[in-house]
Design a protein around this nucleic acid. Structure first.
Lengths: 195, 195, 195, 195
DNA sequence: AATGAATGAGTTTTCATTCAT
DNA sequence: TATGAATGAAAACTCATTCAT
């Protein structure tokens, strides 16, 4: 619970992030969110249509941020495709860095958020498409192996990154973001085989 | 004693897997599971304490199978550590290969299954520990790079694998297991950089 | 649970007395009674129509015993009416003396037993009627005060006796039957005023 | 805030008294109570934790009233101990006089109310202790026989009174409170023996 | 007669959502 | 807007009773 200047709509969404992160979407009660936001239960419904809407708004906010950032990165022409890949990992981690609760909701409730709602699948695909584009450029330039199964690869790195963020959000002291950042970039590029 | 034509206990568990996979744990109703298993609602409670127990039994069955298989693989002395890593990926995929619904439950409900239940976290850690052991051997033999952050790496591959299984379970025709199998092994070992 | 020679019907009824005494009628489960009687759940229904029937049979057995004993006492012509009153108290206590569990069921479940069943009210009235007859004789003989409101008085002593039996059944070491017997007889006859 | 025309909390408790009196605690359904109180089923749970809580609140209210009244009586120094005893009988009857349903619940559900709850046993004991104190004073002043087994006696009169209240509540026209009041006081003090 | 697995009607309780103020 | 009391639909779970063997 926080003292606030008066942006109830934002307060409620932040509260929802905290509560969803703590108990999971289905175990969270609207009155808990209201309490966390220091508003009355009914006020939640002034700003949000229903419980599901809260979750959707969280994902919407998140995906649009991710997409905007990614767009920026993908448009920096000075970067090699491998540098772009690194930059994408960074932006991804940066979005969550300030807010572990948000990371937990993102990781744990993605399935629930997608149910009855194809919007996020699209966002998600758009995001991966953009990432893929950079990689394809890298192949043309000979920086990346030519016979890369992109469809598998993008799910590969996305899953790996998601799981590491999950670990970090659960125990930030054990899995520091810096350590994740450094190693992740190595793994996806070079693998682990001793040459 | 009434007839017991089939194995109701098993039927109910299989039905639960189907229903959980389709709707998610929280959106699944006991009567749906009963119906799917062609038994009365009350019969579910003859064999299982409650809804959560159903989920736990599914995970128990799964993890014990995974662990047994992994143990076997890790004890084959003839394999190099990289071959072992491949074998582990295979066994993991093989467990789910016959049952996409099971894969979906495993991937989507892990968090719910762990709540109020530390048992599975242990299984999971035991599994990763065993995998890690093989990798450490590989480092000693010079097959794997020495400066590998194992703690990050094991979460890296586990997350990647989980996500790929998820994609496959959702659309097996798009993401065939063979394709996943082949590419995954390449990625984790060699990365994607053109040398 | 006991080992028995083979009178299942009786075993089940005794088991019901124990379980009803321990948990109360409504909190008792048929399977508990079956277990206590070392029979299968279904066997209870071989001998008794349903749960309520068990309770009715217990009360039936009890009231018929009480009534038979009372009849005997009331027919002993050598006794004064005050001696008869004492004898009645004794027979009442004697019926329960050997079986505290039975006493508890009798005291606690009387209301439930009477619901949907007027039979016991009749027994009960018959019992009190017979007791009343002895008292009326006593009035004629001048042993008992003439202006006694019998209708109130009989409920008075019945309630008092019931409560004392209850106390005894709950903690026999604190409220011994002998002590109850002795004092009860004094109270109903002489009161407590110092003359 | 929605209108609160009456006092719903009190309405529900009163409704519970009526329904419990009519059907018994275990045969009463929450929706019956809600209906009797003209509220929705869920509203019962706004004011009371669960069904058992309703019963507890009834007993709490009752015992505290009884105890307060008793305290008052016991502190009137002008009364002899026998007069105090009479006054106690009066207060006891007065509490129920206006509400037969309450009397029935008090008499019939005491055992259920005590289960999982020692609070009421304490109230009950405190009540009897206070009554006992008055009697002991009477013994010192020579108003009451010295060799009175108080432990038995207090259970004796309590049981008798309870049963008479029960009869009255069931059929007030047959057992008028006035008649009970008058006779009860005679019985406990003087017994029935013609001197 | 005896069994105990199977049944499903019946009830409590929860909680997202509404709405009068 | 903001409130929070009131709602009632929905679901998990219980357990007396049945019945095929």
């Amino acid at each position: 619970m926080r003292t606030r200047e008066g942006n109830k709509e934002k307060d409620i969404l932040n509260a929802a992030v905290e509560i969803f992160a703590k108990f999971g979407y289905h175990n969270s009660k609207i009155y808990q969110i209201a309490q966390e936001a220091s508003v009355a239960t009914g006020s939640v419904y002034v700003y949000y249509k229903n419980k599901e809407d809260l979750l959707h708004k969280i994902f919407e906010m998140l995906w649009s941020r991710l997409y905007i950032e990614l767009k920026k990165v993908s448009e920096i022409t000075e970067l090699t495709s491998l540098e772009k890949l690194d930059a994408m990992v960074d932006l991804y981690l940066d979005v969550f860095a300030e807010n572990p609760a948000l990371a937990l909701v993102f990781v744990n409730e993605q399935i629930q958020a997608s149910r009855n709602q194809t919007r996020f699948t699209k966002y998600y695909e758009k995001f991966l498409d953009l990432a893929e584009k950079s990689l394809t450029e890298g192949q043309l330039r000979g920086e990346i192996i030519a016979n890369l199964d992109m469809m598998i690869y993008r799910q590969f790195i996305f899953g790996a990154l998601r799981n590491l963020i999950h670990r970090w959000a659960e125990s930030p002291e054990e899995f520091s973001l810096g350590r994740i950042r450094r190693n992740f970039k190595l793994f996806i590029k070079n693998g682990i085989v001793q040459k």
